[in-house]
Design a protein around this nucleic acid. Structure first.
Lengths: 211, 211
DNA sequence: TGCTGATGCGAGTACTTGCTCGCCTTCAAC
DNA sequence: GTTGAAGGCGAGCAAGTACTCGCATCAGCA
């Protein structure tokens, strides 16, 4: 509460120090997991003394926040780029399939980071995680809103789909389950495309009439 | 590694002590979260000294394991009971819907425990979590295997569905998102029933032919 | 060159953690 | 009632934690 702010790095030397601390934070995070991160370890890995670390970060959490923020910015950019690209592509046919593949690539290339972000990072932590999820929800909802979804609410559909697909892709990367990648892509594509179909069928009729 | 085993409680008195420790472990877990659990806290909450705790549990993890085991046994019984019940019910029409509702009930009644189990408990921890997921997968896969799924593999379908539905239901309980319960039930029912439809359509054709 | 604030250091503090160990109390079998 | 084992206690240890503070060093400028 009191002295939250720390000295901002002015000289090139100290800017480099900050970078080394963040990089070391990332490395320690991947190596030892969220709970294994220690300010002393980060400082040592950065080749810096604990005191120097606290010159630029008010506490341990601030270091982790910086690391996570950089990572999620990166990840979100990548995901939304893939999303927009497939929408713009000439053949609209397998938009879903290509997005599923893009997600699997994004998570699969850095399983360790995926594990930290999806598994170890506390949900409460500044709600950085919730904020990320919300941004993805909005991205998908915006696209759905531009299309004819009949009676169904685009935001609800987006929320459901994002959670379903996210969990399946992340789970596949982290659990290495008895499902090979091609099958997973097929099934998730099926799951989503059928879910998105617009038809007035038994299920919808019953649902709007129930209770 | 060396003295893993501890004294087994022989007298009624010590059996009661063990019970109090486990109950206190559960309470502390709900109150302070996974990382907030401390052997000293558990002992204090049980009205017992730390030394007594270590008479019956080799380490802190053993206490938490016992608490989690009891909880997952309970939860799994409840889920599979609901599952089997809906299958046996006269009207097979909304089996999916009623299972979704049962899941929402199960998780929703104890949000604190749901948070601990789904969110805070490390995935690595004795892979108790993975074991639980595997049992649920098998339950669902067994039912699907008894039905005609065409070309599609029941185990893969089960894996995908379990993750999708589980994450959506748990997420709804923990995130309290801008989706009301009735809508979520509708949409998840739609998601699953459509996914389960047996038809030979474009998606399947493309998927089996791809790569 | 000499000065001054920015930078860096790392031993040290204050605290928490999991867990032990010597000692005392209670119980049950004879 | 005696006795030996089961049960229980709780101060305290060893290890580790986040973080500080007094002091040394350095970069850039006059």
């Amino acid at each position: 509460m009191s002295p939250r702010e720390r000295r901002a790095p002015r000289q090139a030397r100290s800017r480099a120090t900050v970078e080394r601390i963040v990089a070391a934070g990332r490395a320690v995070l991947l190596e030892r997991g969220w709970d294994g991160v220690t300010t002393n370890h980060v400082a040592a890995a950065a080749g810096v003394s604990p005191g120097s670390l606290y010159q630029y970060f008010p506490d341990k959490e601030a270091v982790l926040d910086e690391v996570v923020d950089r990572e999620t910015v990166h990840l979100e950019a990548r995901i939304s780029r893939a999303f927009v690209d497939t929408l713009r592509a000439p053949s609209r046919g397998d938009v879903v399939r290509r997005n599923v593949e893009a997600l699997l690539d994004a998570f699969g290339e850095q399983p360790a980071m995926t594990r930290v972000l999806a598994d170890q990072m506390p949900r409460g932590a500044g709600s950085r995680r919730a904020a990320f999820a919300r941004r993805v929800d909005e991205l998908v909802a915006a696209v759905l809103a531009g299309q004819d979804t009949g009676q169904r609410r685009p935001d609800v559909m987006a929320w459901v789909m994002v959670r379903a697909v996210e969990q399946a892709t992340i789970g596949w990367v982290l659990e290495d389950p008895p499902v090979d990648r091609a099958d997973l892509v097929d099934e998730l594509t099926l799951l989503v495309t059928r879910y998105l179909e617009r038809r007035w069928d038994r299920e919808v009729a019953r649902s709007t009439a129930s209770d």
